[in-house]
Computed example of a mutant assay.
Amino acid sequence: MTEPSSNRDPGRRMDSPRAAALAGVLFAVLFSAALILMRTSLPEQLSSAEDWLDDDDDGAATRLTIGLSLVPFAGIAFLWFMGVVRDRFKETEDQLFSSVFIGSGLLFLAMVFVSAAIAGGIVATVPFLTDEDSRAEVATFGRAVMVQVTNIYALRMAGVLLISLGTMWLRTGVMPRWLAFVTYAVAIVLLFVTSLSLWVTLVFPAWVFGVSILILIQNYRRQARAVH
């Protein structure tokens, strides 16, 4: 007779902590590289008289295009990072904070994609404008919208993500308590300090990188104890 399906071997479970660490490291590297390339292609101050996409000047359009090409892959890695970090909670997951974690993470990623799409539209459109004043005005407006979407809205959602995740870590003990407090501190920076400097954005991928490395270390130690 055929063995009932309920008694079948469910199979080997995926090694989610390692996958989370690798995805997080990949996101941190790709997102940081994209941010640096895009930030160095943008002028520090808004100016309607500045054509900052003039490739003959310092290659701003080239850097911006390369940075934009990295954003989708960084987004894919971030989705995997979110999924497997959540998986670590297992049955201890708090549905309220988990919902906020997922929602804020998806909003962050969506707004990053919107900002990148605006930049891509500028790069594709500006070369067709023959009037120099029109080129500068379109580029300046697009740059302002990009910064608003990223620094004012997307990073605030990243801060909410960190607050919900840090709270779940404190309640469940899945990660060290000190990491939860560091996460709160990074969240405060993202919520209130990012408007002061474009480079503060790099604190978020740095946090993801640190969490990913810690998860990778924990997974290695767990495997080492299982062997002995």
Rank of each mutant, 00 (worst) to 15 (best):
W199L: 11
P176S: 06
L107Q: 09
A144M: 12
Y184D: 05
D56I: 08
V174M: 06
L68T: 08
S16K: 04
S197T: 15
A144W: 15
D87Y: 09
G67P: 02
P176D: 09
V147E: 14
Q223S: 07
M111E: 14
G105N: 02
N219T: 09
D131F: 05
L202K: 04
A77Q: 01
R39L: 14
L26N: 07
S48D: 13
E44G: 15
D9S: 05
G75I: 12
R171I: 11
G11V: 04
M38P: 02
G59Q: 01
R156T: 14
V29R: 00
T130Q: 04
A144I: 09
W207N: 01
N219K: 01
I215V: 15
A136E: 12
L53K: 01
P72V: 10
F204R: 00
P43D: 06
G11S: 02
W52E: 10
A224M: 11
V100D: 02
Q218S: 06
G24M: 03
R222D: 12
T92F: 04
L79V: 15
W52N: 01
S115R: 05
T65N: 09
P205C: 01
G173I: 14
L191K: 03
V29F: 03
K90P: 00
A20S: 03
S212Y: 07
T40K: 07
L30E: 03
I188A: 11
I217W: 05
R12G: 03
R225A: 14
L191Y: 01
R221G: 03
R221V: 11
A33P: 10
F27P: 00
I118Y: 00
R8G: 15
